[in-house]
């Protein structure tokens, strides 16, 4: 990646600060962050995984939500750079996918098939706990993150963590568990709505997500609320 301009970086942090106000939508926020991170470092795709109560990584948000890309995130419940970053608490940097087949067979097969050539993963940390990981995919062999890039992406990963903690005012020690559970359930709501829209309107699930997002924007609804609306009253929902 080329050196990130301070101006572009500061614009992102202003946008983050603008978003982290009362009653923001966590999934919208995490999606925005993955898109901005991908733009900033010239990545092909960026995704974010959170651990459920059993410590299994679950997909939360991505800059690109096509089904074949979601599969790459999903397989990391059992292996892959995010799995490693989550379990060690250390980033995985500049991994060359063409020589990663021994380390992560399933993951590498999926990622190469999607056209990716390199991968990085950054742990999401809260105090001593790791709660998830951010995944960056590139289409150049081996990736080319230097120290400065690593700091920038780790900072954006930490911002994602802040978003999670910020979603509701922190009241109690167990708040993180509540947030994680709420966030994971919100993600399921989105997937259910994608399926319902696909069936009701005869489109692919990928197109259904685009329609859902567009609908949320136009009606000024949060993504999760828009999905909820659709599922509550599918008959009167129009893309």
């Amino acid at each position: 990646m080329s050196t990130v301009s301070a101006e572009r970086l500061s614009k992102i942090f202003v946008e983050v600060a603008d978003t982290l106000v009362d009653d923001f939508d966590l999934l919208d926020f995490l999606h925005m962050l993955t898109v901005r991170t991908a733009d900033l470092v010239g990545a092909s795709a960026v995704g974010l995984l959170l651990a459920d109560q059993r410590g299994r990584l679950q997909f939360m948000a991505a800059s690109d939500e096509r089904a074949r890309i979601l599969e790459i995130f999903q397989v990391q419940a059992s292996e892959g750079p995010c799995f490693d970053a989550f379990h060690t608490g250390e980033p995985v940097l500049n991994a060359d996918l063409q020589s990663a087949g021994d380390r992560w067979p399933d993951f590498t097969r999926h990622a190469l098939a999607a056209g990716f050539r390199s991968v990085h993963a950054f742990p999401m940390r809260v105090r001593r706990e790791v709660i998830g990981a951010l995944n960056v995919f590139g289409n150049t062999v081996g990736g080319n993150f230097d120290d400065a890039d690593v700091h920038v992406v780790q900072a954006l990963t930490d911002v994602a963590t802040i978003g999670l903690l910020q979603e509701r005012a922190i009241r109690r020690g167990e708040v993180l568990t509540e947030q994680l559970q709420g966030a994971l359930n919100s993600r399921i709501v989105i997937e259910q709505a994608k399926g319902a829209i696909a069936q009701a309107h005869g489109v692919s699930v990928d197109a259904a997500f685009t329609a859902l997002r567009g609908h949320a924007r136009r009606s000024n609804r949060k993504l999760t609320d828009a999905a909820q609306d659709m599922l509550t009253d599918p008959g009167s929902w129009a893309p």
Partner: peptide, 17 residues
């Protein structure tokens, strides 16, 4: 809750069906 995302998409489709 830990189903793959395809399961929840299918759930949405079947709800409509």
């Amino acid at each position: 809750m830990a189903g793959p995302f395809e399961l929840f998409q299918a759930q949405g489709m079947v709800m409509i069906q």
